[in-house]
């Protein structure tokens, strides 16, 4: 699941009804109209699973007794699939006995409503499930965001980077990564105090976000170090984007120290097509370039292109 840290709350929650009776669809759509939801429906289990993967609902209302694929099987499949396992499911069923309820909860349902349902009761249960889902999402998102800069944190970067590298390898898509390190940051902190240093981190985060496209992933890697994943971006294009970040930071006026400019050194490693490099080796290459940039005068970018699909050219970072 991808969450945009700048836009934590999306519009109307999407609710998916999976029930073989069109009467139930019509009834629920009419009854839930006042709840400001985006309601979709599927008339059998297979269609429901397909739709769940496509529209990523915030909640699924699932009937148990359906021909061909029953609700238990749908629930089991939902919970086995990474893409759908976190979607809460309320069972809407005519089956009243305790064993059915136990089985449903065991399989991961969050609630169980028996048919014929009381609409007022169903509404509050839907609301409660959506509220819980919203809180869980917010918590898991908070845990992935850096408090000072508002960017993704290192933990998020580590997972996301591994995913992007394997996507690049699988689909032979271009991919670039930049490691950015503010020059002489310690001296800014020491000279103007930590609040000034914090302001620089925040200012840098703003510049990064402004330079980023929707598909880029900007993270604070730690201290004064940032990383930027640029998907579908060749090293050549990555260089252009990073140059924009570099000049933008260089041109920034700082209220706490108007006479002191802040600059950044950037190491970029990218690949124009399929690449054999491991995530670690790739990052190591970018880090080496950052090191070179620092060594050779700072306030500059050093960029390299990784070999396309040729093994053994890169050593894993040790």
């Amino acid at each position: 699941m991808t969450i945009d840290p700048s836009n934590p709350t999306s519009a109307k929650p999407i609710v998916l009804i999976v029930d073989d009776s069109p009467d139930v669809h019509r009834l629920l759509k009419a009854r839930l109209r006042v709840e400001d939801l985006d309601v979709h429906s599927a008339e059998d289990g297979a269609a429901g699973l397909e739709l769940a993967r496509q529209i990523h609902p915030a909640l699924i209302l699932l009937d148990l007794d359906m021909p061909v694929m029953d609700g238990y099987e749908v629930l089991r499949t939902l919970k086995e699939d990474q893409a759908t396992m976190n979607i809460p499911v309320i069972i809407l069923s005519g089956l009243q006995n305790a064993q059915d309820k136990v089985t449903a909860f065991d399989l991961g349902a969050v609630d169980y409503v028996t048919k014929p349902f009381d609409i007022a009761e169903l509404k509050v249960r839907v609301r409660s499930a959506l509220r819980m889902q919203h809180l869980i999402q917010m918590l898991s998102q908070r845990a992935q965001i850096d408090g000072l800069s508002g960017l993704w944190n290192r933990r998020y970067f580590d997972t996301r980077w591994t995913e992007e590298v394997s996507r690049c390898t699988r689909h032979a898509r271009p991919l670039s990564v930049a490691i950015l390190d503010i020059d002489h940051f310690k001296s800014i902190n020491d000279t103007y105090g930590h609040p000034a240093g914090d302001a620089v981190i925040q200012g840098m985060a703003k510049i990064l976000q402004a330079a980023c496209r929707q598909s880029d992933v900007a993270c604070r890697y730690g201290g004064e170090e940032f990383v930027l994943i640029m998907t579908d971006t060749s090293p050549k294009d990555a260089l252009v984007l990073c140059e924009r970040v570099r000049t933008s930071l260089e041109g920034t006026n700082w209220p706490t120290h108007p006479d002191r400019r802040v600059t950044i050194s950037i190491g970029v490693a990218g690949c124009a097509g399929a690449c054999d490099a491991t995530p670690d080796a790739w990052l190591h290459a970018a880090d080496q370039n950052l090191y070179t940039a620092k060594k050779t005068g700072r306030n500059k970018i050093v960029c390299s292109e990784l070999p396309t699909n040729t093994t053994g050219k890169l050593r894993a970072a040790g």
Partner: peptide, 24 residues
């Protein structure tokens, strides 16, 4: 059985509990 099952689930929702009960 399926026709009865569907009426059982739907009819009360449309305000016809007696039909739902008979279907059940």
């Amino acid at each position: 059985k399926r026709l009865a099952h569907q009426l059982r689930g739907a009819a009360p929702g449309y305000g016809f509990p007696t039909i739902g009960a008979a279907a059940a």
